[in-house]
Design a protein around this nucleic acid. Structure first.
Length: 781
DNA sequence: GCCGGGCTAATTTTT
DNA sequence: TTAGCCCGGC
């Protein structure tokens, strides 16, 4: 019998320990009754601690068994952290618990119920790059002009639609261009279906639909997960919110933790509004604010509080600290970006001399391109540094090649994988042969692998020999465990030989060997014995195939009584999922103790003793593109807020009068954020010159962006006429022209009057929400 | 099939 | 400025 039916207190006597050292707000949050609650957790307020302690407290008090918990995060790192901390608090095995990322948990769900979800048992996950190449292939196969329908945009469009919960059949299409997009979306869906692959958004949407359409399954999970805990709630998109709501049902309690002031991912679909929707729709009675900050000194917090108070529509929050005021926030104005970089390096050297370690120092910037100057200065000064945001392990080409072979072994219909390695290493299968093959496949509506035997002639022979290779590797690896399978494949595929002969192949070879290690580590971590073949399900017969859950309640029991659901995956399928869902470390160089360089976005969730925020110039930070985005300036301000609150003791702000950008010297004005910071926490190292004095005339905050992107007057006039003509004058499906982003299609409209917004899918810039009052959109007929 | 020149575009990013 | 992509030539 599963533990879920008999929750038993584990260590009742340990409870005081668990709750010791919590401040009153934290305590209140952790010990809330069994109903939905919103925890507004400020930066550095012990958010993760509250989340994990809440879980521990629920389990310990016998309110729920570990299997009744579902805890969801956005990143694998956060999920791991939660499991580690929980494991330290309670003597339980956290591995079997449903703690993971949205995508990871959805993957688990779909593996367990792949049949009900309409997926093959060995379905594979496309990462963004795979998805893009699948889309390119789709366009090519159907002779579609990729100038007119850029693959990137189609990808954006498809993912955007999925994240709104919309299948192609339900997307609005009013003009020919838009209809074509929807049509391509539908074709993409059937291509994925045929190949047995799902993209990231599909994991979410598919599992949402699975629960939505299958009453028994839904009831089962709703009942099972009586407590759902969500981290970084402000980052959830609409589909994730809907998914949570569906899973919670009528009776489960959602413990949502988030910070509206740290919402910086609107551009990828995050909807802060989910916080208020949640309060309303779940009749939340408890909103608890965690405002006690354990990270930063007073001056730093005051600076952050003051800045963010400028934002409207906040839930409202002021961070406080028991630490003293500490050092003032130092501000430096440089003549050039190079001088700015040199100053930063000088200050860093002073900090290092004082004994601060390099890894406690971070240099933050708004966009990646800004790292170059700083890197130069660091190299010149001989200061070791680490840049975050490079290629990750599973994204390296040699690793992707190897994974493609593994995928083919598991699922030969995976055309993305097929095309990636059919001629790598080269085996004389050129573009001509592949064209023939893909024509054949299209004709028979089948995968490339399935079409291979139908191909005749020289091309047919070459492809057949490749298929024999795959077949042979498949047979040879049947008895092998996961790392052995990878090892064998590296040899049999010719990848090893290829990189051995390659002049600069040494590092790639090492990465391939590292892949074997990663496979071994994965197998060990998941508890697969060395004798478990990579493509077998180590379960009792009968339970190996996930029972199809229909409206038969007996079948539901089988799942609960069986082994953990993760075992519904073979080691290989699990490893491939792992590779797609967790691309690995995001750091370029490995260096031991190094100064940390990253974008502000990448710094979210981290903290450092000393933080430098560089490039604080109008157009850069706040970024000029944000000017035309809905609430763009407020999001930039939140971004600045996140940046400031990363610092524990030292905070340095800097900007440069001129900066090399896009090969040209740009002359910038200091960021408006300086005018929004409190004067008494700042210490100007260079003379502070009042805004406007240098450039003549005050800046117009209200018209953020208006001057910069004013379209030609004839467009403005035409637009004004149309706006006067009827309401906003826009409708979805219309093709519009934007002065900066070019042509796009309106895929959604919201609000009215000055608040009216349009969701526009641009051909070259992706989908953006634009304020109709600010952005000038010309209707193209 | 590979190399290199020319063209283009250049926020932020996890899964 | 520079990185990535495409196309043309060998």
């Amino acid at each position: 019998m599963s533990a879920s039916h008999a929750p038993v207190p584990l260590y009742a006597f340990a409870m005081p320990d668990l709750l010791a050292n919590l401040n009153p707000e934290q305590y209140a949050a952790v010990t809330l009754p069994d109903e939905s609650a919103l925890i507004v957790a400020g930066a550095g307020s012990g958010k993760t601690r509250v989340l994990t302690t809440r879980i521990a407290w629920l389990i310990e008090g016998g309110r729920v068994s570990p299997s009744g918990i579902l805890a969801v995060t956005f990143t694998n790192k956060a999920a791991r952290e939660m499991m580690t901390r929980l494991g330290a608090m309670l003597p339980i095995n956290t591995r079997g618990m449903w703690i993971g990322t949205f995508h990871g948990l959805c993957n688990r769900l779909l593996r367990a119920h792949h049949r009900d979800a309409g997926l093959p048992s060995a379905f594979q996950i496309l990462d963004s790059a795979d998805q893009l190449s699948a889309i390119k292939r789709l366009l090519k196969a159907n002779n579609i002009d990729d100038e007119k329908y850029p693959p990137k945009n189609l990808q954006y469009f498809i993912n955007g639609a999925k994240e709104e919960g919309l299948r192609a059949s339900r997307v609005d299409a009013n003009d020919a261009f838009n209809r074509r997009f929807v049509e391509l979306y539908a074709m993409y869906e059937s291509q994925c279906e045929r190949e047995g692959v799902v993209d990231f958004a599909e994991l979410l949407l598919r599992s949402y639909e699975l629960l939505d359409s299958n009453r028994a399954l839904r009831a089962h999970y709703q009942q099972r997960f009586s407590h759902i805990l969500v981290d970084e709630f402000q980052d959830t998109n609409r589909l994730q919110y809907a998914w949570l709501k569906l899973l919670a049902g009528e009776h489960s309690a959602i413990f949502a933790v988030g910070d509206d002031d740290q919402s910086i991912y609107a551009f990828r679909g995050a909807n802060v509004g989910n916080m208020l929707d949640f309060e309303r729709e779940f009749a939340v009675r408890h909103r608890i604010k965690l405002e006690q900050n354990y990270r930063s000194h007073g001056n730093i917090l005051d600076t952050a509080n003051h800045l963010i108070s400028r934002n409207s529509r906040r839930l409202g929050k002021d961070l406080r600290t028991d630490a003293g005021a500490g050092e003032p926030v130092r501000v430096y104005e440089a003549a050039t970006d190079q001088q700015e970089a040199n100053w930063i390096v000088d200050e860093i050297r002073a900090l290092l001399d004082q004994g601060m370690s390099r890894s406690e120092i971070a240099i933050l910037y708004r966009s990646n391109a800004q790292s170059r100057v700083v890197e130069h200065a660091l190299v010149a000064a001989g200061v070791p540094y680490k840049v975050y945001g490079g290629l990750r392990f599973f994204e390296r080409q040699e690793v992707k090649h190897a994974l493609a072979y593994l995928r083919l072994i598991d699922n030969p219909d995976d055309d993305t994988a097929f095309l990636r390695v059919v001629n790598f290493p080269t085996r004389g299968i050129g573009a001509r042969s592949l064209e023939l093959l893909s024509d054949t496949a299209r004709l028979h509506q089948c995968s490339l692998a399935a079409a291979a035997p139908l191909l005749t002639g020289k091309a047919g022979a070459a492809v057949a020999s490749f298929m024999r290779l795959i077949e042979q590797v498949r047979a040879e690896t049947a008895p092998l465990n996961l790392p052995e399978t990878v090892e064998h494949l590296l040899a049999a595929s010719g990848l090893n030989t290829y990189y051995e002969q390659e002049r600069e192949g040494q590092e790639r070879l090492e990465n391939l060997q590292e892949l074997v290690n990663a496979a071994a580590a994965f197998a060990a971590e998941e508890g697969y014995g060395r004798d478990v073949p990579a493509r077998s399900l180590p379960m009792a017969p009968g339970a190996s195939a996930a029972p199809a859950l229909t409206d038969d309640s007996d079948a539901v029991e089988v799942i609960d009584a069986g082994a953990p659901l993760v075992r519904q995956m073979t080691p290989l399928a699990g490893f491939l999922s792992h590779a797609s869902l967790e691309a690995g470390d995001n750091q370029a160089q490995a260096g031991q103790d190094a100064v940390q360089l990253m974008t502000v976005h990448a710094a979210k969730g981290l903290e450092f003793m000393a933080v430098f925020i560089s490039g604080l110039e109008e157009g850069l930070f706040p970024h000029e593109n944000s000017a035309v985005e809905i609430d763009g300036l407020e999001e930039e301000r939140r971004l600045m807020y996140v940046a400031i609150t990363r610092a524990r003791e030292r905070l340095y702000l800097s900007f440069a009068q001129s900066r090399m950008l896009h090969g040209q010297t740009r002359y910038n004005v200091r960021s408006r954020f300086f005018d929004e910071l409190p004067a008494d926490t700042l210490k100007w190292l260079t003379p502070r010159i009042e805004a406007g004095a240098r450039w003549g005339g005050a800046r117009d905050n209200a018209g953020w962006g208006r001057d910069w992107f004013a379209p030609p007057s004839h467009i403005e006039t035409a637009l004004a006429d149309k706006q006067r003509a009827a309401d906003t004058g826009y409708r979805t499906g219309q093709t519009v022209f934007h002065n900066k982003f070019g042509e796009g299609t309106i895929i959604g409209l919201e609000g009215s009057g000055t608040d009216a917004r349009a969701h526009v899918s641009f051909q070259r810039h992706g989908a953006k929400w634009l304020s109709l009052a600010v952005a000038k959109l010309q209707i193209v007929d």
